[in-house]
């Protein structure tokens, strides 16, 4: 049904673009659909294009760079007005980006940065992962005030850049507040199962959870797993142990509604909106955007009408 809607939307957008002589044609090379967030990014990009009357040509690379390069070359051959790439890896883009530059087609990177000379692309729209961690940390600092607070941390996959950066940002935010201390930090691999298992061990190791005042998870899925572990230990997540995480996927809003989570920082799937705005300014007024456009890392709490946000997000394909 969802696919049908999208198809209809795309068809509608195509019809629009045919009728209007000024409409842009933009090619979008997406990595694939490995996660719910990725699926949401795809549907938001399609919606944003439709809203602006842009004819979006979509190519799914199924996690392979060679497919992305092929897609970009075919966009160049079709003579599109601009190209969006969500790059699957950071290296190996120079040649194809030069081809796009020679064809005078601006390229915008979505969601990830690459290792290539800056003049080869117009701009990159990404979130700042360190900032995400910082927003989460600042919320906790503000919420606990002067009370002593022992924090347990569920890290993402060891060595991955979101895990490193979200840890760093959080630590920066609580630095200088001696009442806040990270007493345990362990990886939960970004998954619910591991999040639950690791949270169980935290609870056992810290006097049945009585020593723990807050739990910080590098993504919502681990927080959802940890919430179940806290409940099974006979404590109330959200009250006895504060829960703060990052991503803002729909399921954390269900936890908000149940009063079991306290805050999440959004990794917005809307990278295309700012990209299209920058493109518009560039094509119309020849205004060069900055090389990096940072998306907003919005903080959500149960005060933000979680039911409404949940309903909005649920339709995006998370």
């Amino acid at each position: 049904m969802r696919t049908l809607n999208l198809l209809a939307a795309t068809a509608f957008a195509t019809a629009l673009s045919v009728s209007s002589a000024f409409a842009l044609t933009v090619g979008f090379s997406q990595i694939g659909s490995e996660s719910g967030w990725r699926a949401a990014e795809t549907s938001v990009t399609k919606l944003e294009a439709q809203k602006r009357g842009i004819d979006l040509k979509f190519a799914d690379a199924q996690q392979k760079q060679e497919n992305q390069i092929k897609a970009v070359r075919s966009f160049i051959a079709q003579g599109v007005d601009a190209i969006l790439i969500a790059p699957v890896v950071a290296t190996g883009w120079d040649a194809v980006l030069k081809e796009a530059k020679e064809a005078n087609i601006p390229v915008i990177l979505l969601d990830r940065q690459i290792d290539a000379p800056e003049d080869l692309y117009l701009t990159a729209v990404t979130s700042d992962q360190v900032h995400e961690g910082k927003v989460a940390g600042e919320w906790l600092v503000k919420t606990v005030g002067d009370k002593p607070c022992n924090i347990v941390e569920l890290q993402g996959t060891t060595g991955s850049s979101p895990a490193i950066n979200r840890k760093k940002g959080f630590e920066e935010a609580i630095a200088g507040h001696d009442n806040l201390k990270i007493i345990r930090s362990q990886t939960g691999d970004f998954t619910r199962t591991k999040g639950k298992e690791v949270a169980e061990s935290f609870l056992k190791a810290e006097n049945g959870g009585k020593n723990i005042c807050a739990l910080y998870a590098h993504n919502d899925d681990m927080a959802v797993g940890a919430i179940q572990a806290i409940k099974e230990a006979g404590l109330q997540p959200g009250k006895d142990i504060l829960v703060v995480s990052i991503d803002a996927v729909p399921d954390i809003f269900q936890a908000f509604i149940a009063g079991e989570a306290n805050a999440t920082v959004e990794l917005t799937p809307n990278m295309a909106g700012p990209a299209f705005d920058a493109l518009d300014a560039y094509l119309k007024d020849k205004k060069e955007p900055a090389k990096w456009i940072q998306t907003e890392s919005k903080l959500y709490t149960p005060a933000d009408d979680p039911q409404k946000v949940y309903d909005e997000k649920k339709g995006l394909g998370y």
């Binding site: 490995e34 996660s35 691999d189 998954t191 619910r192 199962t193 591991k194 639950k196 899925d221 959802v224 797993g225 179940q228 399921d251």
Partner: peptide, 16 residues
């Protein structure tokens, strides 16, 4: 059991 434990089916990570 793995799905029931987390109240959801995680196709990417279950049993990985």
């Amino acid at each position: 059991i793995a799905a029931a434990d987390i109240k959801g089916a995680d196709a990417n990570n279950a049993g990985l």
